[in-house]
């Protein structure tokens, strides 16, 4: 039997968004009067056709009102509370094994990169998923700005700890929220830094103003509201690994055949729909990232 394997960008015509909607949205956004630099830039970002999601984009209403963000709440209904997080001024410090440690203002950073839009599948470890048009730039561009030393093996993302985050007062969690990638994972073109979604600035509840987006890994790997990006030769212990070491690890690549200790990862529910669809290995991005792991087979790649 011949199995037809579609590449990520080979999507059937019925999946393509009609041009009128795409153009209509841009025109509408452009006509919205005085748009802040960031907002306008996000509306103008070109969609990268290479990473077509192969399924419908999640309704913005759901993608912006349902997610985990323990700094604000342990439940999912936190988008109102998150509005308190001031998005400007915002700076990101580059630390550790870099040529020159320094602090970058987010707007200065955004002038140095080329914004684009990418529609990525997002798979939460809790077996729900969404499909989101992110705007931002490849993490590799940030790496070349940061200039890590050759000895750096990992890049670590630290989330803000703001007085407006009520969850930080809980004494049980290993704050701050830390996430990390191996340096070659970070250099992969799929690894993305998002500063917007749905053609607008990234809302605070979804990790605004700036966050990591690594779509082949479970959602918790994509740290939100980044304030510090550091380079190290020691593998970091990420937040969920510190919290539940028996259930969560460092690599956390999506794999339908490796169940969470408590539940199956075989299928996922698409937000805002009653559909339960099969989960794919590396969340369907294997053609781009599987080669990162050929020499790491002895590691726990999927938890």
């Amino acid at each position: 039997m011949r199995i037809l394997r579609r590449r990520g960008w080979e999507l059937p015509e019925r999946m393509a968004t009609p041009e009128v909607f795409v153009l209509g949205r841009r025109t509408a956004l452009a006509g919205a009067g005085s748009i802040a630099l960031a907002g306008g830039a996000h509306a103008d970002a070109q969609r990268n056709a290479k990473y077509a999601p192969g399924r419908a984009i999640t309704d913005e209403k759901y993608a912006t009102t349902y997610n985990n963000y323990y700094e604000f709440d342990e439940g999912k209904d936190l988008w109102r509370a998150a509005q308190a997080l001031k998005q400007r001024p915002w700076s990101i410090s580059l630390e550790g094994m870099v040529k020159q440690p320094r602090t970058l203002d987010i707007d200065d950073l955004m002038k140095q990169v080329q914004l684009e839009e990418r529609v990525y599948r997002h798979r939460c470890v809790e077996a729900w998923a969404m499909t989101v048009p992110w705007t931002g730039f490849p993490l590799s561009q940030l790496l070349s700005i940061a200039e890590p030393l050759g000895s750096a093996k990992y890049v670590v993302f630290e989330t803000a700890q703001d007085p407006k985050m009520p969850g930080l007062s809980s004494p049980f969690y290993p704050w701050p929220y830390i996430e990390g990638l191996a340096i070659d994972e970070a250099a992969n073109d799929l690894a993305f830094i998002s500063t917007g979604m749905y053609g607008k600035a990234l809302p605070p509840q979804d990790g605004g103003p700036i966050r990591l987006t690594v779509p082949w890994k479970y959602g918790f790997k994509s740290g939100k509201a980044s304030v510090k990006i550091s380079f190290t030769d020691k593998r970091p212990v990420n937040f969920w690994q510190a919290l539940q070491p028996s259930e969560y690890g460092f690599w956390a690549n999506v794999n339908p055949d490796v169940a969470h200790p408590r539940w199956s990862q075989a299928r996922e529910r698409l937000l805002g729909s009653n559909e339960m669809v099969p989960t794919q290995i590396y969340n369907g991005y294997g053609e781009f990232v599987a080669s990162l792991y050929t020499d790491r087979k002895s590691e726990k790649l999927f938890m």
Binding site: P171, F172, P174, L243, Q244, P245
Partner: peptide, 16 residues
């Protein structure tokens, strides 16, 4: 529970 099933320090929970 926290001592057995999580990485959370149970003494901190007790102290709370």
């Amino acid at each position: 529970w926290y001592g057995l099933a999580s990485g959370i320090n149970p003494w901190r929970v007790l102290a709370a």
